[in-house]
Every structure is written in structure tokens, then in C-alpha cells.
Nucleic acid binder design. Structure first.
Length: 283
DNA sequence: AAGGATCACAACCGCGGGGTT
DNA sequence: TAACCCCGCGGTTGTGATCCT
């Protein structure tokens, strides 16, 4: 018997999520919490399969997610954990609060792997590359391993020397990071700490329902949702502190399909639960 | 300035594990 | 025990952004 598809693919939407879909998913999750993913699309009025909804929520919309590049210490931890666990991204992610397996996997493949190869280290074994892949030009060029990785010249275990070495950024890497921080990319290290008292909470404006943005970026959707003066792309503590300001009501999070605000009433018990949830994340 | 190459990351796909019947 | 269902994981792909020539 063949495996049943995760969902009926006919008529279901694929590809990038729109702001409208994000709204629906966030509204649903905040109202109902996590329930059966398979049933969620129907209940939330989405033309997506449950799997797609789960991914979108866990990898992108969850309010406790950190955004931005991994910090140096996070990167160090990822390398260390990868040496122990291999490509078990979800296990690795469980050690990094606010980071998802997908995010870590992507960061590994695009940044860390490259760094390691550059330094003559096999990203799979975490050991110095001894016989370079002749097809890999970069490896060929770079395979004069940095002395600190040569086992004979180091009293450290391979993993330990690797971790310390990889996080000692090369001049080039520093340039890269500078470039990134001057572009639109955000590194969590670069985000200034904000005192909670500095956060302004703006009451919901009734004329702000429509947005011209069709992008699926979390920034735009969250602006659309009119979260009070909140930037979800930065530190989540700040986000949640914003949520817990006196003026803030959980009802403000909920927006009707046609853009009207406050159409969904939250049960006081659920409201309390939501706040507990937010407080829990703060701790 | 234009177009191709490369990069970065969101999203998809298929499989396996675990729970339930 | 087998069949089924759902969820989560890891690999891969698609696409927009950026860089380079």
C-alpha cells in the first residue's frame, strides 16, 4: 500500500508565503495554540498543507525566534555540537534557544562549512584535510592547514582546536561581517541593547489595516499585524517586553481576514495563558 | 549599465520514527 | 503484529539579492 500524501495537493498553494497567509496563520496559532497540523489549514482558512504551515510557523513566525546572523558564541556552539552530533540539526538547534534547525543548517552550509574548508578542515570529520579532493579548487588552494590544526603541533583535541580556531575570525571574515553590518543584514551582535523603558508602545491605529507589501518577510507581516512598535527581527526579549506593556492587549494581535481589527474575542483564561507564555519566554 | 555568476535562505520533498487502532 | 496516521528531520531546490566583469 502506497504512502498517503501528507495532504491533498490539488488546489493547494505552494511557494513563498504572502503577508495575508502569515496573518491567518499567526492569528490562528495565537488563538488556538498548536493543534493538529493536518487540520490547521482548513481551520485557519489557508490553502496550504499542514506541513507547510508547520514549517512556516516553526522556522519563521514563532515569536520566540531570534533573527539575524548567529553570534560568535552561537557559531562556536554549533561547531562543537556538530562535532559531537553530526548533521542532527534539530538536536543542535535544541541547544540554541530561538534558533531553528533549518536556520542552523543553512548557516552551516553557507558560512561555517566554507570557513572550515578554507582553513583546511573537513567539515564532516572536523579534522584537518589530509588528502584534498582534486576537484575542489578551494580545498587545493587552502590545503596548507593552519599550523594550529596540525595534530602534532597542538596539544588540544581536534575538535577543541577546531572550535577555537574557527571562531578566531580571519581578517577577511571580519571584513565580511563589517560589510554585512553595513548592508541591510542584521547581526545579533550588532543590535544595541534597549532598555525596556525606551520602548514606545503605540496604540493601534484604525487606518493601518492595509499594506501595499506583498513580500513574505516577517517584518512586513508583523508591521501589517500592527504589533505595538515591535521589531521581531531583533532581540526577542525586547519583543516580548513590548508585548507586555500595559497598553498592549492580546486582542490587538488578532486581525480579521478582511483587515478589521479586534474581531476575535479572547477568553480571559486564554489571554492569561498567552501572557504566561510570553512571560515564560522572557525567563 | 547590463548581464551573468554566486550567495543566502526560505520552502519543499521524501523518508523514518513513534503513537494509535 | 500490522496497518495507518501524523509529525519531525535532513537533504535538496528555487528564487531573490548581491557581487563581479
Amino acid at each position: 500500500m502506497g504512502r498517503q500524501p501528507c495532504c491533498d495537493k490539488v488546489g493547494l498553494k505552494k511557494g513563498p508565503w504572502t503577508a495575508e497567509e502569515d496573518k491567518k496563520l499567526i492569528n490562528f496559532m495565537l488563538t488556538n495554540g498548536q493543534c493538529c497540523w493536518r487540520a490547521l489549514p482548513k481551520l485557519a482558512g489557508l490553502l496550504r498543507c499542514g506541513k507547510s504551515c508547520r514549517l512556516r510557523w516553526t522556522n519563521y513566525l514563532r515569536p520566540d525566534l531570534k533573527r539575524g546572523l548567529l553570534s560568535e558564541s552561537e557559531e562556536k556552539l554549533v561547531i562543537d555540537l556538530h562535532a559531537q552530533l553530526g548533521n542532527r540539526w534539530s538536536k543542535i538547534a535544541s541547544h540554541l534557544p530561538g534558533r531553528t534547525d533549518n536556520e542552523i543548517k543553512n548557516h552551516w552550509n553557507t558560512h561555517i562549512k566554507k570557513k572550515l574548508k578554507k582553513m583546511g578542515i573537513d567539515p564532516v570529520t572536523h579534522k584537518p584535510i589530509t588528502s584534498p579532493d582534486p576537484t575542489d579548487d578551494q580545498t587545493k588552494e587552502q590545503n596548507q592547514p593552519n599550523e594550529q590544526f596540525a595534530p602534532a603541533s597542538s596539544s588540544m583535541s581536534p575538535n577543541k582546536s577546531l572550535v577555537s580556531a574557527i571562531t578566531e575570525e580571519t581578517k577577511e571574515d571580519r571584513v565580511d561581517r563589517t560589510t554585512l553590518s553595513t548592508s541591510n543584514k542584521i547581526c545579533t551582535d550588532d543590535i544595541p541593547l534597549i532598555d525596556p523603558s525606551e520602548i514606545l508602545v503605540q496604540p493601534r491605529s484604525s487606518s493601518s489595516a492595509s499594506s501595499t507589501s506583498s513580500s513574505s518577510s516577517s517584518d512586513s507581516i508583523l508591521q501589517d499585524l500592527d504589533f505595538p512598535s515591535m521589531d521581531w527581527s531583533c532581540d526577542n526579549n525586547v519583543n516580548l517586553i513590548s508585548l507586555l506593556e500595559d497598553d498592549f492587549k492580546w486582542e490587538d494581535l488578532l486581525i480579521d481576514d478582511d483587515g478589521n481589527s479586534n474581531m476575535i474575542t479572547i477568553d480571559p483564561i486564554d489571554d492569561q495563558a498567552s501572557q504566561d507564555w510570553a512571560y515564560g519566554l522572557l525567563l
